[in-house]
Simulated assay, not measured.
Amino acid sequence: MSSLHPEVDTISAGKKELAIRYPGLRQFCISVNHFGYSDFDAKSGDVDFASGKIRTGRISTFFNTPAVKWKGNSLSASIYYTYTSTELKDITNKLPAQELTPLTTDKSTFDLALNYSRSAAIFNHPIIYSLVARGITDGVNSFRRFNLNGSFNLPLKKTENTTFSVGLLVLVDPSAPIPVEPIVNYYHKFNSSGLELIVDLPTGVNLKKQVAKHAWVLVGSNQRSYTTFYDQKNAFLDGKVSYNTIELKNGAAFEYLFAKNIMLTVDGGFNSYLSAKLFKDGENYNNASFISSNKGTLYVNAGLSLLTF
């Protein structure tokens, strides 16, 4: 989110309005996610490994520090924490010599991101550069992974009801499926209906409507990725590994603003798994040791967030 919406963004909207529009820009958030059981089929290379059911629960928090600004530059930090509870059951092993057993694990992941952005001009047209450096750890070992992403964003249209910008996002991240992704940010408010169309690729597309002075409903699809680290000592995994998922939430949400800057969010729908892979140290998205086909499942979520200081 720091690359898609850098602090020096030229969109003509106040910080509070942007935080209402884009939840990832809020100062602080804590949310609780609960998922139903999902069927999975795992492979080791091209060989069937195991199948069964998996259920995940998450408690996620993030804190975005206020930005330090000078001469078109901006520097800030983001701190993320995710507690993940994973349950495996009804396991059917395909390789007798390598058995996966029913289990329940509870893991924590900490993520620190430093965000730098700069506003400049090229051929008399504004352009925004952003660089984000991230370190991820499980809180027990040292940093388990370092990621880097950079982007540029070209604002193309800016009116009272419409903003439009495009750009490119470059990912230096072993868990990323592709190294470069297009950025498309389009916002339009339809005066006749009050509907807001929010296209925020590569993260999501949403339709939003204010239904009361401090209340909104929205429907849409939003993509997120998650990492959980493990230290395994068994016949098929020996050492540090990470389980990475890319998930797409399709559903509806209700948000209510109270106490001036505190937002309550309740949402639910269907969660699809675009990717689920287990990496050993040194492996990347294309050569992961284990690939799992996880079927989608229902989810519910509740959260509290602070818009701005």
Rank of each mutant, 00 (worst) to 15 (best):
Q210S: 00
V184M: 05
V140T: 09
E99Y: 01
H125F: 03
L114K: 05
L4S: 04
D238C: 07
E283W: 04
S12Q: 05
N286E: 03
F279I: 02
A253H: 03
N64A: 01
V68G: 01
S221A: 08
S221R: 02
W70L: 13
V217S: 08
A276Y: 02
E160A: 07
Y243L: 08
Y273C: 13
E17W: 10
L257S: 07
T10H: 13
D231T: 10
K107H: 09
S221W: 03
L169A: 13
G14L: 01
G45T: 00
P6R: 09
R21A: 15
K249P: 06
G150N: 02
A235E: 06
V180Q: 14
P179G: 07
S38L: 07
L168M: 10
F35E: 12
D9L: 09
F290G: 00
S142H: 07
S12T: 08
R134F: 08
T203A: 15
N244G: 05
I54H: 11
E247I: 06
G194N: 04
F290R: 01
A259Q: 01
Y299N: 15
T159R: 06
L278C: 03
I127Q: 02
T203M: 14
M1A: 05
K71Q: 04
S44I: 08
Y285R: 00
G52Y: 03
K69D: 08
Y187V: 15
L100M: 15
D106V: 01
A19Q: 03
L307E: 09
D173E: 13
K280S: 08
P126D: 00
G268A: 15
S130L: 11
F309L: 11
E247M: 05
K15I: 10
S38V: 04
D39L: 06
L18A: 13
N250D: 05
G251K: 00
L201A: 15
L298V: 10
I128Y: 15
A13R: 06
K16R: 13
V180T: 14
N149G: 03
K240E: 14
G268S: 15
Y22C: 03
L201R: 10
D267R: 15
I246L: 02
N287T: 04
Y285D: 00
G36F: 15
Y285A: 02
T101I: 04
K240Q: 12
T163G: 04
S289F: 10
S305T: 05
L197H: 12
K249C: 08
D281V: 11
Y83F: 12
N93T: 01
N284V: 03
E196T: 02
D231E: 11
K158H: 04
K189T: 07
V180M: 14
L88G: 03
V199C: 01
F190C: 11
S119D: 09
E87R: 09
I127K: 02
K15Y: 10
I178R: 12
I198V: 14
F258E: 01
N271K: 13
T61H: 05
L100R: 08
L168V: 09
T104M: 00
K157A: 14
S78T: 11
T245N: 12
N287P: 01
K277F: 04
